[in-house]
C-alpha cells in the first residue's frame, strides 16, 4: 500500500506523460465507436450530460451514504476486535481463524447472501461493505497493538494511571498511525466493494448504473459514471486524510515543519 502512496505523490513531474497519454487515448478512440471505446473528450461530454440531470446527485448520495455507513461499522467493530486481539492473547488465538475465514469470502458472495437474507434493502450493501472491510481494519489495529511501547505502559502503571487515562493518553496516541492507515484502507476498499454490492444487490446507486449500462453495452456511459465517482472518492481521500494527518501528528518534528 505504502509504495502505491509514495508513487502517487510523484505524479506532478509525470504530468507530461499524463498529457501524452490522454492524447494517445483520444487518437486511439477515433478508430472505434464511442459506445465501445470512448475517448477522454466523449467521456467528459457524457459526464456533463449525467450531472446536468439533478437526479444523478441522488444516485451518488445514495452510494456515498452506504459507503459511509458500512465504513463506519467496519471501523468501529474492526478497531474493537483489533484492540481485543492485541491486548488479550487468548482472544487473538481464538479469533484469528474467524478473521482469516472472513478475509477469504469474496465480496460477490456477501453481496448475494445479503440479497438472499435481506432482499433488496439497504442492509445488503452495508453488510457486504462492513464484512469485507472489517477484517482488514481488525488486522491493522491488531498489528498496531503489537507495536505498542511496553516501557510507556509500565511508566503508566508505575504512576497508577487508571484504565481510561492509559487508553486516552498512552495507548490510543500510539495507535493513531495504525488507526489512520486503517481509515484509508477502509475507505478505499469500501467504495470499491460498494460498487460490487450495488451492482449485484440493492436497488439504486452507482453500482446499479454500472451494471445497467454494462448490460446495454454502453462503455461510454459506464465509464462516465465509474470515472466521475472515482474522482470524487480520490478527492475525499486526499482532502480529508492529508489535512487531518498533518494536524494529528503535529508532535512529530519532521511532519510539523
Amino acid at each position: 500500500m505504502t509504495s502505491v502512496r509514495r508513487i502517487a505523490t510523484r505524479i506532478p513531474p509525470g504530468l507530461a506523460t499524463f498529457a501524452v497519454g490522454l492524447l494517445a487515448w483520444e487518437l486511439l478512440s477515433l478508430f472505434f465507436p464511442p459506445v465501445i471505446f470512448p475517448g477522454p473528450w466523449t467521456l467528459l461530454e457524457r459526464m456533463v450530460e449525467i450531472y446536468s440531470d439533478p437526479s444523478s446527485y441522488l444516485v451518488v448520495a445514495q452510494t456515498l451514504q452506504r459507503i459511509f455507513e458500512g465504513f463506519a461499522i467496519a471501523m468501529l467493530t474492526g478497531t474493537a476486535f483489533g484492540l481485543l486481539m492485541g491486548l488479550k492473547r487468548d482472544a487473538e488465538l481464538f479469533f484469528d481463524t474467524w478473521i482469516m475465514v472472513l478475509l477469504t469470502v469474496p465480496s460477490v458472495c456477501w453481496a448475494f447472501l445479503g440479497v438472499l437474507w435481506f432482499g433488496i434493502s439497504e442492509a445488503a450493501p452495508i453488510l457486504t461493505i462492513s464484512l469485507i472491510v472489517f477484517p482488514f481494519v481488525a488486522i491493522n489495529i491488531w498489528e498496531g497493538t503489537k507495536a505498542v511501547d511496553k516501557g510507556l505502559m509500565e511508566m503508566g502503571s508505575v504512576y497508577r494511571a487508571n484504565r481510561s487515562l492509559m487508553f486516552r493518553k498512552v495507548l490510543i496516541p500510539q495507535l493513531m498511525p495504525y488507526i489512520f492507515s486503517s481509515l484509508r484502507i477502509a475507505l478505499s476498499l469500501s467504495w470499491k466493494i460498494a460498487l460490487v454490492a450495488e451492482a449485484f444487490g440493492a436497488g439504486g446507486g452507482i453500482g446499479q448504473e454500472l451494471i445497467n449500462w454494462f448490460q446495454d453495452t454502453r462503455v461510454d456511459m459506464m465509464l462516465a459514471w465509474g470515472v466521475s465517482f472515482m474522482i470524487v472518492m480520490v478527492l475525499i481521500d486526499v482532502l480529508a486524510f492529508r489535512l487531518w494527518a498533518r494536524r494529528a501528528f503535529a508532535w512529530r518534528p519532521q511532519l510539523a515543519t
Binding site: 510507556l152 504512576y159 494511571a161 508532535w251 512529530r252
Partner: peptide, 17 residues
C-alpha cells in the same frame, strides 16, 4: 509521551495520582 507537551507529560502523572 511524545504526543503530549512537557506540561502534558507532567499533568499525566498528576492526573494519574
Amino acid at each position: 509521551l511524545n504526543w503530549l507537551t512537557t506540561a502534558g507529560n507532567i499533568e499525566f502523572a498528576l492526573e494519574a495520582q
